[in-house]
Every structure is written in structure tokens, then in C-alpha cells.
């Protein structure tokens, strides 16, 4: 019981933790690509990272709906994780079109 609910606290931040890691990796890859001249490889690398970040978030967001009266935290977690998915889709979308190094 205790472990299960504590797991809920982790789930509450899981989605956005993934978002944060993806943010750091993408920002770093953008800077490295410009500094070390990745050229034509630069954008594909960023897009691959983008898609890699979305996969676990999609998985988290589509978990079965929690039920029971004790489902307050799991429900909040589910919404937070969906918010993280939305944030990832939108915030990182510019890797597909924005100027990389200018």
C-alpha cells in the first residue's frame, strides 16, 4: 500500500522529468551541433531525439485509468503526464523547422 502510493508521487513528476531531460538533451545537441559543425546531420539528430522523448510519454499518458476512491494522486499524475506529453509535442516541435544556428 505504502509503496504503491509512494510510487504515485513518483508518477506525478515522471512525465515532466522526462520532458526536462529531453529539454536539456535537445538544447545541448542544438548547441553542440552549431559549435562542432554537424551540418546536414544536425536536424535529423534533433528530430530523432524528439521522437525518442515522445515514446515514453505516450506510454505514460495511455496507461489504464486508475480507479477506486484512493485514486486522487494517480489521477492527478495521469493529467500531469498528459500535460508533459503536450508540452513535449509543442515545445520541441520547432526542431522540425526553426533555424538551427542563426
Amino acid at each position: 500500500m505504502s509503496q504503491g502510493t509512494r510510487h504515485g508521487l513518483v508518477r506525478l513528476v515522471a512525465g515532466f522529468a522526462i520532458w526536462s531531460i529531453a529539454f536539456i538533451v535537445l538544447y545541448a545537441a542544438q548547441a553542440l551541433g552549431c559549435a562542432y559543425g554537424w551540418g546536414a546531420w544536425h536536424r535529423p539528430v534533433l528530430i530523432v531525439i524528439y521522437l525518442f522523448a515522445l515514446a515514453p510519454l505516450i506510454w505514460l499518458s495511455t496507461r489504464p485509468r486508475p480507479d477506486g476512491t484512493d485514486a486522487i494522486l494517480p489521477t492527478a499524475a495521469r493529467w500531469a503526464n498528459r500535460a508533459a506529453l503536450l508540452a513535449s509535442v509543442l515545445v520541441f516541435l520547432p526542431v522540425t523547422f526553426a533555424s538551427l544556428c542563426a
Binding site: F16, W19, I72, A80, A83, V91
Partner: peptide, 18 residues
């Protein structure tokens, strides 16, 4: 919206670092 507010503050906390 107790649950929605919890989700919102978590989202706000993380987004504010980005």
C-alpha cells in the same frame, strides 16, 4: 478541481525551469 490543481502546479514548476 483539487486533482487538476495538483497537476497544474507540477506542470508549472517544471515548465518554469524551461
Amino acid at each position: 478541481g483539487y486533482r487538476a490543481i495538483i497537476a497544474a502546479i507540477v506542470a508549472m514548476a517544471f515548465l518554469s525551469f524551461g
